[in-house]
Simulated assay, not measured.
Amino acid sequence: MQRILLVEDDHSISEVIHHYLTKEDFQVELAFDGEEGIRLFQHNSYDLILLDLMLPKLNGIDFLKLIREQSNIPVLIISAKDGEVEKALGLGFGADDYIAKPFSMIELTARVKAAIRRATQYSSSEPAEEKVLQVHDLTIDIENVSVLKIGKPLQLTSTEWQLLKLFATNPKKVFTKEQIYRSVWNEDYFDDQNIINVHMRRLREKIEDDPSSPQYIKTLWGIGYKWGEF
């Protein structure tokens, strides 16, 4: 049974999520403030964290910073702070996805399952025709799910890895944002470009020498993205 840590100070919302996800065969543990959430995380093992941003004692962004110092566990932000700035802020600190309140439990469950599935693919070995790809300064080990840049390991989130793998293993293909979303998130695309933009920016900050002038993942304006040629 997959375990979820829900960090949410609204008891009524926590009860609804706990009840629904339990029926979906998840084990859900509750924390009602950031400090309690950190304590539970440090003493238990989880497959995903559901995190509200507006928390007492330790806010969601500071909570996320602490988590990212220790783990790449998928984190799904649930918050009433709905706006492009807040979304980018949350994702920029290492969240894997964002869902704004109010949301349907069907949508939340789908996002939870997709995030765990991506993380599982990221941590498991996967057979591939080419197990190691050498592209300029990057060494991309598909089987062992690792990336080196000039011999130094890069720490990618599961979503960043899936994006990098998508482009590196399809070097001649141009991907639209809809195709990227369907391939990486395994969900229907509802024109939520912000999520893709933020994840792409974070990935470029890690793999590119100059993220403002990317060489590995090129932008084709008005079309999508394509793996660079070296």
Rank of each mutant, 00 (worst) to 15 (best):
Leu48Cys: 06
Leu133Trp: 11
Gly224His: 07
Glu129Tyr: 10
Met105Arg: 08
Gln134Met: 11
Ile116Phe: 11
Asp10Leu: 06
Asp141Ala: 05
Phe230His: 06
Gln2Arg: 14
Leu51Arg: 04
Thr176Ser: 15
Leu5Asp: 08
Thr169Asp: 03
Ser212Asn: 09
Ile17Arg: 07
Ile217Pro: 01
Glu107Val: 14
Ala95Phe: 03
Val28Leu: 12
Pro211Cys: 01
Lys177Gly: 13
Pro56Gly: 07
Lys206Leu: 14
Arg68Ile: 03
Glu143Asp: 02
Met1Asp: 06
Lys131Phe: 01
Thr159Met: 06
Val132Arg: 14
Pro74Ile: 06
Ala31Ser: 11
Thr109Gln: 10
Leu148His: 12
Asn197Pro: 01
Arg117Ile: 04
Ser14Met: 03
Asn59Lys: 06
Gly60Lys: 08
Met1Lys: 12
Leu108Pro: 09
Thr169Arg: 02
Gln193Ala: 09
Asp137Phe: 15
Ile217Gly: 01
Pro214Lys: 03
Asp33Gln: 08
Ala114Trp: 14
Lys173Ser: 02
Val75Ser: 03
Ser45Arg: 10
Asp191Gln: 12
Thr157Val: 03
Val16Ser: 14
Arg202Leu: 08
Arg201Glu: 09
Met200Ser: 04
Leu48Gly: 07
Tyr98Arg: 02
Arg3Ser: 11
Ser71Gln: 02
Val112Trp: 09
Gly228Arg: 11
Val28Glu: 05
Thr169Ala: 03
Ser124His: 15
Lys113Gln: 13
Leu40Cys: 06
Asn194Phe: 08
Glu205Thr: 08
Ile196Pro: 01
Ser124Thr: 13
Leu203Arg: 07
Glu126Thr: 15
Ala128Glu: 12
Met200Phe: 07
Arg3Asn: 10
Arg202Lys: 06
Glu143Met: 04
Glu24Gln: 15
Arg68His: 02
Ser212Leu: 08
Gly94Val: 06
Tyr98Glu: 07
Leu40Asn: 07
Gly94His: 03
Ala80Arg: 01
Thr139Asp: 03
Leu133Lys: 08
His11Cys: 09
Glu178Tyr: 02
Ser14Asn: 07
Arg117Leu: 10
Lys131His: 10
Lys65Val: 06
Met200Ala: 08
Gly90Lys: 00
Leu203Lys: 06
Leu133Tyr: 15
Ile140Val: 15
Asp97Phe: 13
Ala115Phe: 13
Thr157Tyr: 04
Thr22His: 13
Ala119Cys: 13
Val85Gly: 03
Arg204Gly: 02
Asp188Pro: 08
Thr120Ala: 14
Asp52Ala: 00
Gly222Tyr: 09
Pro214Ile: 05
Lys101Leu: 11
Asp33Ile: 02
Trp161Met: 07
Ala80Lys: 01
Ile150His: 15
Leu89Met: 12
Val145Thr: 12
Leu5Cys: 09
Ser71Val: 03
Ser213His: 13
Gly90Met: 02
Leu138Lys: 10
Ile73Tyr: 00
Arg111Lys: 13
Val184Phe: 12
Ala100Thr: 15
Ile73Asn: 00
Met1Ile: 14
Phe230Arg: 09
